[in-house]
């Protein structure tokens, strides 16, 4: 105890303090300038009716928030975000686990398949959005051609609120599924094969091994996967803009596109800041709750 204390003291004053003084300020400064200050500023701006010119003058207290919560397009945006989260959790991640389990073995074909499934993730979001816009086009798109081949009327997917929402979900799943598959693959490779062999020798079926050995051991990986899926869904912006720009009407707005379309382009910086604050609160609450109450290890 005494030894440890005497050992620690000089290290704090000497190298330890040096390290703190050398490495903490830059990170702290960057974090303060780019995270803390903007959040503080946005919270301040959100109390004003302000078009972005000069300094905010017209104080409106919480009026922006009151309007926001009663505003139908914002509710649509919020619901769309929740829908994306639900699709991510219920379809994207289970499919990623399935694909990863099938493709975890060695062999050239599995490597090629992994690469193909991972490719969409590498593609830039804007490019992906534009490509899919063509695919869904009711005149020239792949979907239209396929529908005509089947003798049906070509649907204009991006012109119908419900179909546009489906289209967005398809693109999001297609785009990010590969990322989750890779996470799960890495997780699978970290599982000692002997554990599965032992289970098999004990007479466990494939399904039982998956349920009682693989899945519990994948828990830390899935925890990260779910975290990324939720935060990614809340940030969803750059795929939506080229694909639908939040339309038709406001059917495919997300909170981020809503912020851009209703805050920035309409020069309602106070209102937009209120959206930003709400988005921040949702993300921060989720992060804290998730990290505190959803344990990674059993």
């Amino acid at each position: 105890m005494t030894l440890a204390a005497t050992r620690r003291k000089p290290s704090l004053r000497g190298d330890g303090l040096g390290t703190v003084l050398l490495f903490l300020p830059p990170a702290l400064l960057v974090f303060t300038i780019f995270v803390v200050l903007p959040i503080g500023e946005a919270s301040w701006f959100s109390l004003f009716d302000w078009n972005g010119y000069g300094s905010p003058q017209h104080f409106v207290a919480l009026r922006n928030y009151v309007r926001l919560l009663a505003f139908v397009p914002f509710r649509t945006a919020l619901l769309n975000n929740l829908l994306v989260i639900a699709i991510s959790l219920c379809i994207q991640i289970p499919v990623a686990i399935g694909a990863a389990s099938l493709l975890s073995g060695p062999g050239r074909l599995t490597v090629v398949m992994r690469l193909i499934l991972f490719l969409p993730y590498i593609l830039a979001e804007v490019a992906a959005g534009l490509i899919w816009r063509f695919v869904f086009d009711g005149n020239f798109g792949l979907v239209a051609v396929a529908a005509r081949e089947l003798g049906m009327n070509a649907p204009f997917m991006l012109a119908d609120p419900d179909l546009a929402r489906v289209a967005l979900m398809v693109v999001v799943t297609w785009k990010y599924f590969g990322f989750h598959m890779m996470l799960v693959l890495a997780g699978l490779q970290g599982i000692d094969p002997e554990l599965r062999q032992a289970a098999r020798m004990d007479g466990a079926t494939g399904a039982q091994i998956f349920r009682h050995v693989t899945l519990p051991l994948l828990r830390p990986t899935l925890r990260v996967s779910v975290f990324f899926a939720v935060i990614g869904s809340l940030q969803l912006f750059d795929i939506v803009m080229p694909l639908t720009a939040g339309g038709p009407g406001n059917a495919t707005q997300t909170m981020a596109t809503f912020l851009y379309n209703f805050g920035i382009t309409r020069m309602k910086i106070g209102f937009g800041s209120a959206v930003g604050v709400v988005l921040f609160l949702i993300s921060a609450t989720f992060s804290i709750v998730y990290n505190r109450w959803v344990p990674g290890e059993r």
Binding site: M157, A159, D160, A164, T244, P248, G249
Partner: peptide, 15 residues
């Protein structure tokens, strides 16, 4: 035109 609710201005120019 069918799908006008999703069409961009350049789409309509082209049509």
């Amino acid at each position: 035109q069918p799908g006008f609710a999703g069409a961009q201005a350049p789409d309509s120019y082209g049509q």
